[in-house]
Amino acid sequence: MTLFSSSMTLRAATPISDAEFKELRDFIYQRSGIWVDEKRKYLFENRFHKRLATLGLKSFDEYVKLLKFDPRSAEEMKTLWEIITTNETSFFRDIKQLESFQKVILGEVLAEQRKKGKLELNIWSAGCSSGEEPYTLAMLISESLGLELPKWKVLISAVDLSPAMIAKAKEATYGDYAFKTTTEEQKKKFFVPEGANFKVKPELARMVSFQQMNLNDDAAVRRVPKSQIVFCRNVIIYFDDAMRTKVARAFYDNLLSGGYLLLGHSETLHKISTAFRPKFIPGAMAYRKD
């Protein structure tokens, strides 16, 4: 006895041939460094199925051709990044890492800058998604600097592959979901209510500058201002080893000496780069450029 009036099939999408899958996968890899495993072929079929229908395309082959040769390509790339990237994040995510970062790393970097008499701080947030991470960093910095804050020039360069995420980040307005790892106290301190949502206080938002960027784009990466700190959390898990090595080098080149790289909770530079000196901080690992 079934509740379904007609039979339904598990397959809902046009099949992608092995050759088409490889072509699309390689195209995505060349452009973004994101490596899509063969095992995710069916997910791919499903995700792109609707897109193909919207564009009135009959096969994945036509889609790849559009991406490669069509004048609409640049526009379509924006949608492509939407489809292949995920954006799980929230304010104060991985608080143990952030607390030790604030206490140990940020403390050390700020002290160093004061000693040099250069009240400047540059941070690069690579893979900032909808902005929760760079804004969280702005909040931690304002907490650490306290009354000193107006004397400092703080710049957080936040970049992400997805233009839609960057647009959302610039809005600086968030619903409940972004606050699942935030205390009421933090919410009161750093946000102003706006209807049912909350907006990052303007003096904090001012520290962050957003830009769409592909970490595989060497020229763009080189234009990021030299930083004392780089945050790149939950990004390199989507890369293969070659691309991980490449971005690790880019972060190294971007960092000023004595600067630190911080990765996501389960990510390491193990097997990727030996250029950095790993430094244990409670709940996390930081990588120092000596």
């Binding site: 099939t9 598990l10 069916y42």
Partner: peptide, 9 residues
Amino acid sequence: RAAFLYVNP
């Protein structure tokens, strides 16, 4: 179906 996206349909 969303839970079956990893399997051969």
